[in-house]
């Protein structure tokens, strides 16, 4: 067999798999999005994007991503730097910090619901300490900010670890000599972080950010568990079009909108954190 064709033959199985289970369903969804009343049109987009809940759910999704992702990046960077400096017990700490990764997002939502609900841990603690007289409704329509905070906290708790894992691997790839050179040439620990770690971590930051931002636009189960209908998000709208309203065309159109937003952000991140040619480790 000619070695020229070998790479293509080797990637053939995974290509077939992706075509069968991702590309084909995607094309079906895309077709459905543009199909209404037996003809192709933008009717589904007009209908779903014109609905009053569209702008509020888009806004909520964006706000949540805006609140969660920067905190996750900072936390993951801090945790990754700490873990990388540890000499002993590093693996143990890493395992413990990544436990939330093994929990499904709905379960994570329910855990945090158990903290915030009327008979939950937070209320019991506050009444036990005498801060409040009787348990309060924390996750109600009266407290939209608290609902938002609870969802954001749950998301941060649940999904920071995936960034952490990527960043720890990335930091591990930076040769120790760069830090020593920076130290000898007068960079303080903070300057070393800013001028060595961060720029050399760009490829890992890219991956981590894209993954997190895309997943942040797909937030669903945690919101359902903690906010119910109080906090509509894009994925929730897609769900209700598909299953409550039995409008598959509308659901498909909204799914494409989320896809477009995800692609746009991915391109922005790739561009913002690109590494010039010849400047890689």
């Amino acid at each position: 067999m000619s070695p020229r064709y070998l790479p293509y033959i080797l990637i053939l199985p995974v290509t077939l798999f992706l075509c069968a289970f991702f590309l084909y369903p995607f094309l079906l969804v895309a077709r459905q999005a543009f199909l209404s009343d037996g003809g192709y049109s933008l009717q589904n987009f007009r209908e779903t994007m014109g609905y009053w809940k569209f702008s509020i759910s888009l806004q909520n999704t964006m706000l949540l991503a805006l609140a969660v992702v920067p905190v996750q990046v900072s936390l993951a960077l801090l945790m990754a730097t700490m873990v990388s400096r540890m000499k002993k017990g590093r693996d143990l700490v890493l395992y413990i910090w990544t436990i939330p990764l093994g929990i499904s997002d709905l379960a994570a939502g329910i855990i945090w619901f158990a903290i915030f609900e009327q008979s939950g841990f937070l209320n019991s603690m506050l009444t036990g300490l005498g801060v409040i007289d009787k348990p309060a409704v924390l996750l109600g329509y009266q407290n939209p900010l608290l609902v938002f905070i609870a969802i954001a906290l749950a998301e941060i708790w649940r999904a920071t670890a995936i960034m952490l894992v990527i960043l720890v691997a990335g930091i591990g790839l930076i040769p120790k000599e760069y830090y020593e050179a920076a130290e000898v040439f007068g960079a303080s620990p903070w300057q070393r972080f800013l001028r060595i770690t961060l720029p050399l971590l760009r490829p890992s930051l890219q991956t981590a950010l894209i993954l997190r931002v895309v997943l942040a636009f797909e937030v669903f189960a945690v919101v359902v568990a903690l906010g119910g209908t109080l906090f509509p998000v894009m994925m929730g709208q897609i769900y209700s079009y598909q299953f409550d309203l039995q409008n598959a065309g509308g659901a498909a159109a909204l799914a494409l909108v989320v896809l477009a937003i995800s692609i746009a952000f991915t391109l922005v991140i790739l561009r913002a954190l690109r590494v010039p040619k010849g400047a890689t480790i």
């Binding site: 050179a181 000898v184 720029p199 590494v275 890689t280």
Partner: peptide, 14 residues
């Protein structure tokens, strides 16, 4: 002091 390292440690991003 200034130092020259074995693997040069020339910062790749600069």
């Amino acid at each position: 002091i200034a130092m020259v390292f074995q693997n040069y440690a020339v910062f790749p991003h600069l």
